[in-house]
């Protein structure tokens, strides 16, 4: 008896990868008009993919990744920033073949509208959502899947909703997920202020530190810079 009541989104874009190492350019949902971008990635045997994804503005990314052949690997890095708007990342990773591996690190920030976001504000406070399903089909063995959802909630009323999910029909698996939601580390803020850095800058530096390891996964300087600029605009109050 197998069924999954979490439906897959029909994808607009489908990309397949063959065996080898691939460092993909980031998928970026720039937002504005509430864009929903749905992408499906198929990893064949031996295909190892590093993929950064960003939702930086009002919009949603629906991503499905099929690990369809033995030796397929997914390394996903995601970031969504809901600055006075709704930003969603929805990821479904399907382990359809044995001996596959997936690692996900998705970070989220929810805060009030910044200057740049003022034109596309749903509400004064943003709502960021992450839903991440790891699905392991029956008969699929030696699966190693990990997913971490780390979120920072900056202003009262801004909202983070995170739903890490596991749907597993095989037993020779090691699957885990973790999710945290919190504010900035107040102790770290105090530490920096004690060294003379003013509070706003201390908070800003921490936020930049928070997103640094996702932005750094962009494979080229160009994409890295473009994304850093967008993030900067969103977070500037």
């Amino acid at each position: 008896m197998i069924f999954s009541n979490i439906p897959e989104v029909a994808a607009d874009e489908v990309v397949a990868f063959e065996a080898g190492d691939h460092a993909a350019e980031p998928i970026v949902v720039k937002g504005g008009s509430g864009v929903i971008r749905s992408v499906k990635v198929v990893l064949g045997a031996g295909a190892r993919l590093r993929l950064p994804v960003f939702v930086l503005g009002r919009g949603k990314l629906a991503l499905t990744v099929d690990l369809a052949g033995a030796g397929a690997e997914l390394h996903l890095y995601g970031l969504f920033i809901a600055a006075g708007m709704d930003a969603d990342i929805n990821v479904r990773v399907n382990h359809l073949a044995s001996d596959t591996l997936s690692r996900q690190l998705v970070k989220g920030i929810a805060t009030e509208a910044g200057e740049a976001g003022a034109r596309n504000v749903d509400a004064e406070q943003g709502r960021g959502e992450f839903t991440g399903m790891i699905f392991v089909a029956k008969g699929v063995q030696r699966v190693d899947a990990q997913q971490y959802s780390r979120n920072i909630q900056l202003t009262p009323g801004a909202r983070i909703v995170t739903r890490p999910q596991l749907e597993i029909y095989a037993d020779d698996v090691k699957c885990s997920h973790g999710a945290t939601v919190g504010g900035l580390d107040e102790e770290a803020i105090f530490y920096m202020r004690q060294r003379g850095v003013d509070e706003a800058t201390a908070r800003r530096m921490q936020l930049e530190g928070f997103v640094a390891d996702i932005v750094s996964r962009c494979p080229t300087d160009d994409s890295r810079v473009e994304i850093a600029v967008r993030i900067d605009k969103l977070l500037t109050q």
Binding site: Q153, L154, G157, R163, I168, A170, V173, H177, G178, L184
Partner: peptide, 27 residues
């Protein structure tokens, strides 16, 4: 290997001073 184990948690936070941590392992 004929059974299923599933986890569907939701964490929904609207205040910055809260600390919420969730972990799950299936094996």
């Amino acid at each position: 290997d004929r059974c299923g184990a599933h986890t569907f948690p939701t964490v929904d936070v609207s205040v910055p001073s809260a600390v919420v941590e969730h972990e799950a392992t299936t094996s």
